[in-house]
């Protein structure tokens, strides 16, 4: 890793985030407008981009700046965990209002008046791959890429794809991360209806990315291992990664659980792997931002390694589907 970015409810700086989160009380859930205003996107973007895409655009710019990647961007890979569609509620309200007849939705009215009432580019707000594409277009990122739907753990697949892409020579630099908004009213309604919202954390939003290069380029922080298991209790699937984690002492663990059940599972894993490590549960201060949470956790781990004196940091994330993702980072040479 040679750089990172984090667009969170607590601002846009990943450096010092461990200290900030350790001192914080309670969780903040929404990315402050001032953070987005710090680097305004082109006005046209606002007609086409979901909130998650706008967070991703800013996160990509910040990560590229942080890594010092200003040239040859057409070769840079981009792998992103993304969430559900996130179209503007104003557009949806306009469309639905024009489609009502006698208090009921009328398909006939929708086909004409309803569709005419919405922005022609509304579909681009809905397509969740545009969470990746808007930023790639604006930043000129032309390398291998993929958008992975994520309830949390899926973002670790984006990390894995980025690592594979570098290891197989498809690209020598890549951004990996996630962007999402659990604050979108439709998503929030779904989470409330399914009773999966955690009263201790809450659904939040944001984006985060890490900048990866090949090992022979001598980065300061290494990704030693990663894994995803569809069941947080599946020790066999996580075995290899956990074995790697236990090879040497881990002194910092970042948890990004969705909900209390997942928190207990992750804490159990943490105690098993490194009972004496310092543990920071970011969902208690940043909320749970679905596809973005694991990537935020990676940046917290990076800060722990860069400025908190940690040598090896483990990130454990779990989504609301019960899947678990693991990533191990270290300041030492990768084994």
């Amino acid at each position: 890793m040679v750089g990172a970015s984090a667009v969170t409810p607590r601002g846009v700086d990943w450096r010092g985030i461990v200290g900030a989160l350790s001192a914080a009380k309670g969780s903040l859930l929404e990315v402050p407008q001032a953070a987005l205003d710090s680097d305004p996107a082109p006005p046209r973007l606002y007609a086409m981009a979901s909130p998650a895409a706008r967070f991703a655009v800013l996160a990509m710019k910040l990560a590229l700046d942080d890594a010092g990647w200003s040239t040859d961007r057409e070769q840079i890979g981009l792998f992103l965990g993304v969430g559900a569609s996130g179209g503007s509620m104003t557009e949806l309200n306009n469309m639905l209002s024009e489609s009502m007849e006698g208090g009921h939705f009328s398909l006939a009215r929708f086909g004409k008046q309803g569709l005419a009432a919405c922005n022609p580019l509304f579909a681009f707000q809905l397509m969740n791959n545009f969470t990746l594409c808007h930023g790639a277009i604006l930043a000129g990122l032309g390398g291998p890429n993929g958008a992975f739907f994520s309830r949390g753990a899926g973002t670790f697949e984006a990390l894995g794809a980025a690592i594979d892409s570098i290891e197989t020579g498809e690209c020598d630099r890549a951004l990996a991360g996630g962007a999402d908004s659990g604050r979108h009213p439709v998503t929030l309604a779904e989470l409330q209806r399914e009773r999966v919202l955690d009263p201790q954390s809450g659904a939040s939003e944001g984006a985060a990315l890490i900048a990866l290069i090949a090992e022979n380029e001598q980065p300061s922080v290494f990704v030693n291992a990663w894994a995803v298991a569809p069941d947080a209790n599946d020790e066999e699937l996580l075995g290899e990664c956990m074995t790697e984690a236990q090879r040497d002492a881990i002194d910092f663990i970042v948890l990004a659980p969705w909900g209390g059940g997942a928190r207990a599972t992750l804490e159990r894993w943490a105690c098993t792997v490194a009972p004496h490590a310092r543990i920071l549960d970011i969902s208690l201060t940043l909320g749970d931002s679905l596809a973005a949470s694991p990537a935020m956790a990676w940046t917290v781990a990076l800060d722990a390694l860069a400025s908190e004196g940690a040598h090896r940091a483990l990130v454990l994330g779990a989504g609301n589907d019960g899947a678990i993702g693991v990533a191990l980072f270290s300041r030492r040479v990768a084994s």
Binding site: V82, N128, N129, L132, G146, F148, G154, P230, L237
Partner: peptide, 19 residues
């Protein structure tokens, strides 16, 4: 996953027409 009782990872690619 439920139909086949799959135990492996589930990866959902959301890359539009390239997916």
């Amino acid at each position: 996953r439920a139909l086949f009782g799959l135990k492996g990872s589930v990866i959902v690619n959301s890359s539009a027409c390239a997916a």
